[in-house]
Each structure stands twice: as structure tokens, then as C-alpha cells.
Design a binder for these strands. Structure first.
Length: 378
RNA sequence: GGAGGGCUAGUGAAGUGGCUAAACACGGCAGACUGUAAAUCUGCUCCUUCGGGUUCGGUGGUUCGAAUCCAUCGCCCUCCA
């Protein structure tokens, strides 16, 4: 008996995208899905109640950050992460593998694991596949991620190959040390950089083991968009149809659509919440930097087509004022809107798949968003 | 009436003869942000037809050269009468 199961509902006749459900111990995720990121056991500035009103099905949290602070032992004694943070829907925990990449100047990688220096106080710490599983077991996430290495872009072929092979061995160690497969699912992570043969090798090696889901990592690390789409084009077909596919770290609106078209079921990204805190919003007409002076007397909503709490009640001028005055309510309003925007986008994508018109939907969306001549995508 | 102190770019504030169109901070304007060391970071912020032009309370001097020295006027602050 496995904790996480994928149910395929239908395939879009026009695009090949999948409409489905991921069943987890804390409920069902309708896919394709966007997962807001709550690294430190909170989606920055949002309460769980607010996340529910925008209908987020699942959120992310992070092994490395919670290991450092407050400590997985404390969260374990609190009764697990769900109880600790008052979120009763599914949680996916990243393994800390991405921190191996983003905190690269403070770590040393060996076959056994990774020696880290804490970014908080410089403490020497060690993370390994077994340790990452122990931590995620204590957190009690619905979906755990295997401990991987996310190589930078660009990277040497030989290094990427060695790295992916180690990531595969680490995945196997994760599987073997998985303490509670009955109530926590474990996803493996395909690596291989921008190299077709390496991606296929990684996917084949990992799918030869029985993980309840597969992620594609190592993308959205600075490479051009078309390269990422190429990787998806030849990687996704290597993944089993009966299991969920998760594209890690991707969250610009265009990439969510393009990823769905290529058969991806789950996405996560800090982009909507981070740019919200820095004054940029996503709207049906494209990105809108509401902090800019030109909105000082714009009394309309961020997005005239948006039904979210922010857009129903507050103007661009007011939000700009709050942001300029460093009032926390301002970043709460933009964060709420951006998350709602992406969650609504995924609802629209699912509807379009249901009606076999996802390619049409993409073209309409891109035209309005002004994306056809924009490689950035948000 | 007397004695001191001060007046520098939008604001605050360095600078007390050349390396100063003038530090720094704030404010302002823009940009970046993709499994969150990010409510963060970066750039610009006197004018300009990019050659240059005009600045440091006003005016007049000294000097090869002044925000910096002198004189004078104005305004502000403190203390003594």
C-alpha cells in the first residue's frame, strides 16, 4: 500500500496534457497543479486560511530550513508539520537538495552526503540521503523528495553525469531508508542538465525503482526557456504514465502552461510570492510593477479580470502606497493576488484539458499576456 | 546691546585651498528576481543638443586655483544683558 497514488482522468486531445488527481494522506490534489512555496513552514505573509480561500491544494516546505530552525525534533514533538503550522491539506517537502546548489559556497559534496555550513550561524552540518529521510519522516509530509544534487547551468557534461549517477544512488538509499511508506510518498528526482542522453539515463535508472512519483530537477537555473522545453520534450516520455510528474522550481505563467502541455502534473515556485514582495504582480495583461510611479493615481484593480480578494477590494494606487510606505499589508495583498493568479491559471488549464483545447488556451493567454516576443515569461 | 555657533544637491549630513559635480544616509526613479540565506539586491538621482554648462545663503575680494581664506549683507540657533 502506497501513500501517494496518481489517477489519470483524461488526456487533452489537442495538446496531450494530462488531467488527473494525486491522492495523498491529507487529501486530493487536482492536476496540473501549482504548489505555493512555504519554505519555513509558512507561505510568506499568508495564513493557512487565506491559502484555503484561494483554493491551494498543497504547499511546499523545506527539509534543510526546518532542520536548521526550529529543528525536526521539535516539529516531531509538536505532532508533525501539519499540526505545527495548522495546515491540514497535503504538504510536499523538498529534501534540501536545492540548498546544496544555492548555498554552494558553504558545502562539500561526497558520496556519503553533503557537509554544510549553516547559513544562520556557520555551524557544521551534515545532510545525507538517510538524514534527509529521517528529517522528512519527522516532519510527516505527504510527499517527500529524495536527496539530490542540482547542478548549476552551465555545467560540464562529465560533472553532470557523475552528479546524476550519484543522485540516483542517493535516491536508492532514500528508498531503502524510507521509514513510513504507508503514509508518506517519496519522489525521485531526474537530473542530467541539458543533455538528452543523461536525462534519459537518469529517468531510466530511477524508474527502474518503484517510486510513487517522479520529479524533474535542475531546470529553471538560468538556462533559456526553449532549452528547458527541449529537456521536457525528451524527459517526460521516459516517466511512467501511472505516476505523477513534478517539474521543480518552475512557476512563470508561460512555463506552467508549456509544462502542462508536455505532460507535467505538478509545479512549485517562489516566483509569485517573491516578486509580490518586491512590488511586481502577474495579471491577465502581463506583468505589472505596481510599485512604479505611473500607478500613483490608478484607482483600478491590479487585474480587471481577476476575482481575488485583492482585486475585488483594493486599487493599484492604494497597493502602491502601501508598498512605498513599507506597510506589510501591501505585500500581503500582492502575494495573495499572485498566488490566486497562478492557482486560477491552473484551474483554467485543467478546464481547457477537460475540453480538449489547451493549445488554443495557450495562444489566447500568451497573446493577452504579451509573451510571444518575451523569453522571460512573467 | 554683547558673545559664540551655523547656512552644502529633494531632505539630513560629510568636506575647511587643487585628487570635489561634491562622501554617506534617507527620499525619489527604474531594473532584477524561477525546488526562498530575498518585505532582498543592482543601477540612476544639479542641467545638458553629452562637447560642455552652472553649483555649496547673497555680493565683492585674495589666489595660478575657493564649498573651503578675507570683507560685507541676509537669515537661523545658543548663551549673557
Amino acid at each position: 500500500m502506497t501513500a501517494v497514488k496518481y489517477e489519470l482522468i483524461k488526456v487533452c486531445k489537442q495538446s496531450g496534457a494530462r488531467l488527473g488527481r494525486v491522492h495523498t494522506p491529507h487529501g486530493v490534489i487536482e492536476t496540473p497543479a501549482f504548489m505555493p512555496v512555504g519554505t519555513q513552514a509558512t507561505v510568506k505573509t499568508m495564513s493557512p486560511e487565506e491559502l484555503k480561500t484561494m483554493d491551494a491544494h498543497i504547499i511546499l516546505s523545506n527539509t534543510y530550513h526546518l532542520f536548521l530552525r526550529p529543528g525536526h525534533d521539535i516539529i516531531g514533538r509538536a505532532g508533525g508539520l501539519h499540526k505545527f503550522m495548522n495546515w491540514d491539506r497535503p504538504i510536499l517537502t523538498d529534501s534540501g537538495g536545492f540548498q546544496v546548489f544555492s548555498l554552494s559556497d558553504m558545502r562539500k559534496i561526497t558520496e556519503e552526503g553533503v557537509q554544510f555550513r549553516s547559513h544562520l550561524n556557520g555551524d557544521k552540518l551534515f545532510l545525507s540521503p538517510e538524514k534527509a529521510m529521517e528529517i522528512q519522516n519527522a516532519l510527516g509530509s505527504d510527499i517527500m523528495m529524495a536527496f539530490d544534487e542540482c547542478p548549476p547551468y552551465p555545467a560540464e557534461y562529465d560533472y553532470v553525469k557523475k552528479s546524476l549517477e550519484r543522485t540516483t544512488r542517493w535516491a536508492e538509499r532514500c528508498l531503502n531508508s524510507h521509514a513510513r511508506p504507508h503514509d508518506q510518498g517519496l519522489f525521485a528526482i531526474v537530473q542530467g542538465g541539458m543533455h538528452k542522453d543523461l536525462r534519459i539515463q537518469s529517468a531510466k535508472d530511477l524508474t527502474s525503482m518503484d517510486f510513487p512519483g517522479y520529479a524533474i530537477g535542475g531546470l529553471s537555473v538560468g538556462e533559456p526557456k526553449h532549452l528547458m522545453y527541449d529537456v521536457l520534450d525528451y524527459t517526460v516520455p521516459e516517466l511512467p504514465a501511472g505516476k505523477p510528474r513534478y517539474l521543480m522550481g518552475v512557476g512563470s505563467p508561460d512555463a506552467l502552461i508549456e509544462g502542462s502541455i508536455r505532460g507535467v502534473d505538478m509545479f512549485d515556485c517562489v516566483l509569485p510570492t517573491r516578486i509580490a514582495r518586491n512590488g511586481t504582480t502577474m495579471t491577465s495583461q502581463g506583468r505589472l510593477v505596481v510599485r512604479n510611479a505611473k500607478y500613483a493615481e490608478d484607482f483600478g484593480p491590479l487585474d480587471p479580470e481577476c476575482s481575488c480578494y485583492t482585486c475585488q477590494n483594493y486599487s493599484r494606487a492604494y497597493i502602491r502606497h502601501l508598498l512605498k510606505a513599507d506597510e506589510t499589508f501591501g505585500i500581503r495583498l500582492t502575494t495573495y493576488h499572485n498566488l490566486h493568479f497562478l492557482l486560477q491559471l491552473m484551474r483554467d488549464v485543467r478546464q481547457a484539458i477537460m475540453e480538449d483545447r489547451l493549445l488554443d488556451f495557450r495562444d489566447d493567454f500568451f497573446t493577452k499576456y504579451g509573451l510571444f516576443d518575451n523569453d522571460k515569461g512573467f
